[in-house]
């Protein structure tokens, strides 16, 4: 049932908007010039396009985006991934935006003898945004509430086997080595550029290298400490941003495998129901809070960290 709703939201809704825009053009055919305004400057329309070409390009882009969206949503669903309704709404908005632009240009050109006589920009922009936002909202509604994965049974949760009276701490992390050495490669590339091209200015290359080095250093490593005070997570060589979770707010901990595309990239990622400290793909510590929010960190030997968190939280008491 959920798959059908996602298919309708990701495929049927954008296709209906594309079809509706095409039908609108057919209905307005007698009132539209062959060439319509495609861009507005401060003084009015300043660029134009053949209506037939613009229709083909915008609806073609929309169709391709819809197809990509539909395949991505269905494959993610079949592979068991959680597909947030907000993500479906966003891609539906994106897929229908070109059709919205076409509808806006057509509306502005209604009953005009030349594209230069087209109506104001705000009406075209209003149509473009209104149509696509409405499509995104409709897709969000059709997709229905985001399904959350069922929480693990207490007996399934990992444990470090901590005995009463024992004290323990787990200190570990995960490193993205290509990223860690990426900054060094950027510096070497910059040095090579200077040697090979005499008279090359320092700026803006030095600034670009500095930005690359800082960016790599900021997200190449994640570090986690689990002890009796709580769980502390920090990102990068600077240890910022960081977050400390106390056991009052932790429900349980577990592990999962993140892919390169999970959470939409590397670094500190926020999404529906989760915050991820991600520096690589692979094994990941997942800490579920009492609020249902999940905090993730891509650390090595995540099962041991999760086990200690569960032992210190008492999450396995129900086992």
């Amino acid at each position: 049932m959920k798959t059908t709703r996602l298919a309708l939201a990701g495929g049927a809704v954008p296709l209906a908007v594309l079809g509706g825009t095409w039908a609108l053009q057919a209905a307005w055919a007698d009132r539209l010039p062959d060439v319509v305004a495609a861009h507005w400057g401060l003084t009015g329309p300043d660029r134009s396009a053949e209506l037939s070409t613009m229709t083909g390009v915008t609806l073609g882009i929309g169709a391709v985006l819809t197809l990509v969206t539909l395949v991505t949503v269905l494959v993610s669903r079949l592979r068991g991934a959680v597909v947030p309704r907000s993500a479906v709404g966003f891609v539906a908005w994106l897929a229908t935006l070109p059709a919205g632009v076409l509808a806006g240009s057509m509306y502005a050109a209604l009953d005009a003898t030349s594209w230069r006589d087209a109506g104001p920009a705000w009406s075209a922009v209003g149509w473009a945004l209104g149509l696509s936002v409405a499509a995104g909202a409709a897709a969000t509604l059709v997709a229905g509430p985001t399904e959350r994965p069922a929480p693990a049974e207490p007996r399934d949760l990992p444990s470090a086997g901590l005995q009463p009276g024992e004290r323990a701490s787990w200190i570990g992390g995960g490193t993205n080595y290509p990223m860690a050495f990426g900054g060094l490669v950027a510096v070497l590339g910059y040095a090579l550029l200077h040697v090979s091209i005499p008279g090359l200015g320092v700026m803006p290359f030095a600034l670009a290298v500095l930005v690359v080095v800082l960016a790599m250093a900021a997200v190449c490593r994640v570090r986690v400490r689990v002890d009796t005070t709580g769980v502390t997570l920090s990102l990068g060589l600077f240890g910022f941003p960081n977050r400390t979770l106390t056991y009052d707010e932790i429900a349980s901990a577990n592990t999962e495998e993140m892919t390169m595309g999970s959470a939409g990239g590397y670094g500190l990622r926020r999404g529906v129901g989760y915050t991820a400290f991600k520096v690589r793909a692979g094994e990941t510590l997942t800490i579920t809070l009492n609020s249902g929010h999940v905090v993730k960190a891509t650390v090595d030997h995540a099962d041991r960290a999760a086990g200690l968190v569960n032992d210190l939280t008492g999450a396995r008491d129900g086992a």
């Binding site: 470090a160 901590l162 009276g165 004290r167 323990a168 701490s169 200190i171 570990g172 041991r304 200690l308």
Partner: peptide
């Protein structure tokens, strides 16, 4: 790295 101690040991 997991380090555990038992003060009563």
């Amino acid at each position: 790295m997991l380090i555990r101690i038992d003060p009563a040991s």
